[in-house]
């Protein structure tokens, strides 16, 4: 009964959206640091490229999907019937989510190739692309919470 009540309230999509976004930010940070930080011991390069790729694939990508599903669900409940223009913060959210998705996919594919073929520069490029997406998502967090 409690579960049914929780799912029927608008807070649940918000929880899904925020929790997914938090995991996404944590996972993307992990992948970026793993790709861009200098190695500590011999053989670090291959290990860290593989770690970064797996983090993006098994943590960041599912978290992005959860964040996005929560966002759409929330949007349909809050603005679904409205014919007025969306507020600025919604626009920032959609823009960073869409561009972020593209950057996440590029980072994921390049990290996969870099991990499989031991390509140092491609690994670094993946880290830079993921870092750009991460900055965008942090801007989105500011916009979503401060609602400028």
């Amino acid at each position: 009964m409690i579960g049914v009540l929780a799912f029927s309230r608008p807070e649940f999509p918000l929880f899904l959206h925020v929790f997914g976004a938090m995991i996404l930010v944590g996972a993307a940070t992990t992948a970026v640091v793993a790709q861009l930080a200098p190695g500590v011991v011999t053989g670090d390069g291959d290990r860290m490229r593989r770690f970064s790729f797996r983090t993006l694939l098994f943590a960041a990508l599912p978290a992005y999907i959860v964040m996005r599903v929560g966002a759409e669900w929330m949007y349909s409940k809050e603005f679904g019937d409205s014919t007025a223009d969306d507020p600025t913060w919604i626009g920032i959210g959609y823009m960073t989510a869409d561009i972020g998705a593209l950057l996440l996919l590029i980072a994921l594919i390049t990290a996969g190739i870099a991990s499989r073929k031991a390509k140092y520069r491609l690994g670094k490029a993946s880290g830079v692309v993921a870092a750009i997406a991460l900055v965008g998502w942090i801007v989105a967090v500011w916009a979503m919470s401060g609602k400028p």
Binding site: A21, M22, V25, G26, T30, I138, W142, G146
Partner: peptide, 25 residues
């Protein structure tokens, strides 16, 4: 108040983000 809320939420993202980093490790 909007700025304080923003910084509060960004801090929460840092806290949960760190928790996620440790779980991945």
């Amino acid at each position: 108040n909007d700025w304080i809320l923003s910084l509060h939420v960004l801090s929460a993202f840092a806290l949960v983000g760190a928790m996620v980093i440790f779980w991945i490790m």
